[in-house]
Design a protein around this nucleic acid. Sequence first.
DNA 1: AAGTCGCA
DNA 2: TGCG
Length: 206
Amino acid sequence: MTTPIHISGFQLWKTRLDAAGQASMVEALREVAEAAPFFHPETRWGRKMSVRMTSAGRVGWVSDRRGYRYEPRHPVTGAPWPQIPDCVLAVWREVADWPDDPDCCLINYYSEGAKMGMHRDADEGAAGFAAPVVSISLGDPAVFRIGGLERGGTTQKVTLESGDVMVMGGPARLAYHGVDKVLFGGSTLLPKGGRINVTLRVVRSV
DNA sequence: AAGTCGCA
DNA sequence: TGCG
């Protein structure tokens, strides 16, 4: 599909990745996770998030009692993050309409029952806000919620399925969004089920 | 508050 | 189920 759907300023390409493309991306991400294992981040208040995360790229997104930030090293192993896989960069270059490659490839794994509250991607620095955020969905479908620029505004729901690619850019770059729930078992792409979401960002704060 | 819960 |  070459024409995206527009939802509150977000662009959504349904099944932008075909089955083979999804499978090879999962394999590439599995290799990233071998070098940079998934970890369970804590919020600033010491609560575990339900998603597990890891990253690739120059910096990775990290959360702990010190707050949210980007770091050049894995918080558990201390190793630099692996390189962003070429197949992931290829998606960015196709849809981002941005001259630079992303600095961070955040990989979120949603097992059964995992969700993510409404938030903004706001840790990338002012220059990073100019670039879009690209999001790739793999595995089980998820109910994604899109809000506006302020917390508590009206929201819209959209189901994201495996192979979907979404771009949050322009006026919607700092819009609130979250994941209500994962429709566990809705896809056979991942051996253990669940959902992987890959987000690509230009980071100018680190 | 990238969480959780309680309320309408 | 969408807020607060």
